[in-house]
Nucleic acid binder design. Sequence first.
RNA 1: GCGCCGGUGCCCGAGCGGACCAAGGGAGCGGCCUGCAAAGCCGUACAAUCGCGGGUUCAAAUCCCGCCCGGCGCUCCA
Length: 485
Amino acid sequence: MIRLYDTLTATVRPVALRDAGKVGIYACGPTVYDHPHVGHVRSALTFDILRRYLEWTGLEVTHVANITDIDDKIIARAAGEGRSEAEVAAEFEKSYVEAMDAVNVLRPHHSPHATEFVGEMIEFVRGLVGSGAAYANDAGVYLRVGRLSDYGALVHRTPDDLRQGAGARVEIDENKEDPLDFALWKSAKPGEPTWDSPWGPGRPGWHIECVAMSMGILGEDFDIHGGGDDLAFPHHENERAEANASGRKFARHWVHHAMVNVAGEKMSKSLGNFRTAGDLFAAHDPRAFRLLVLQTHYRKTMEVNTGVMTQAETALERFDSLTRRAAAAGLSTERSAAGVSPGHHEDLDSAAVEAFRSAMDNDLGTPEATATVFDTVRRANTALDAGSPDAAVLVATVFDLAGALGLEFGRYILREIHDRVGLSDSVSYSPTVAPESAEIDALVEARSRARADRDFAEADRLRDELTARGIVVEDTPNGPIWYQA
RNA sequence: GCGCCGGUGCCCGAGCGGACCAAGGGAGCGGCCUGCAAAGCCGUACAAUCGCGGGUUCAAAUCCCGCCCGGCGCUCCA
């Protein structure tokens, strides 16, 4: 079983599943008040990789990632733009989903919206008020944090510690019994969307929606809860507080990933920085960002800039070229080529599979796992060069392992990606495709004939002509292969 | 200020007490292959003095202490 760092215990420990063979993951998704930025993408990629890997090992995964579609920032934006909160949320959720598709993030099994769970939230808050764990006044309903002795445990602080910070930095709120108390329900203010509740019209507080949605879909005592490490406090801590105050068991394991820095965020484009995911993917292959995320451990801050993106794009070329070489040799690059199914990889190269598994099991060691895949690429190339029968298994291994990481190859893939997100017209690097090509084929064949006749001047002329059309020709023992650069 | 995380080659980035070398990717350089390329493969010196200074240990990039620098958090941000 995979071992993961658990924020609560501050140790790397095996994930102890509630139900054998099944994993429930709740990953905090975005509040959709603006276009997604690269940090959102890293977040989604982290959990997509975790999910894919767990599925690869044969576990049945239920991946839940919420969309928070009602909150102060959405309200503010809607008010500023003279449209409804729902319109704002819908616009940016669409933008978010497009970015996720661009980086090949599998759709979560559930993508609940906060506004769909207001009824559950109200019930939950009602229970807390009923037991005295929370109190209501004119401003709303607040949780009595003072009753929770281990409040702060997720960030390894004591309540007094936090109280000091809260008292010092935040103006005293007269509606709270304790500065640490926070709103479960906010009473209606003019111009804001509201729902009816036992405490009058109002709307949910920030943390309650994730408690309602996670336990509503995955049930109590679910396996993994995660998000960016900036969410550990107050968001996740407050979720814990709410769940614990209700007497229910919450997440068994807490997984937090680190942030991404885009150098000197102030001067964006001119310095090669990217404010939004769209900016990044208009300039670079989205797969390169996934590779970058894979090559950095999830608990470590990563830096994104033009230089590292370009390096990652070049690295990707190793996979794409293996794809071409394998295809030219008549080998399938389908994951299923070697009869692989989730949890069963015995027909693949066992050394690579085991190295991969052991890297991933060790706190999602994607950098080492990715290194294993690159090692396997080299072995596959060597086997291909030698015409060895081992090539088929090695190639199949590469694509199986890479698939578990969500990497997809083949130059034609890029066009698909851009079509998927409607970026085809805005890319500033040349999208590569497998063009339809009776004409190109004819030129390539003519060149082959010229080479066979040792008429190299003509062969080179034809290659130049192809180059002028953006076509790269490579000669292999299995004949020439070509693709659009 | 307090808490947590981090500072590794030209660049990105693993490793986190030793027994096989400080992975992997990128750049540069040299070689093999090629008609020439491309792709691929092989090699790559000048100590990578693993932020700096102490310490523990038979043994430290890996543990401890101090310092410097960076990131995140300290109430609505992935």
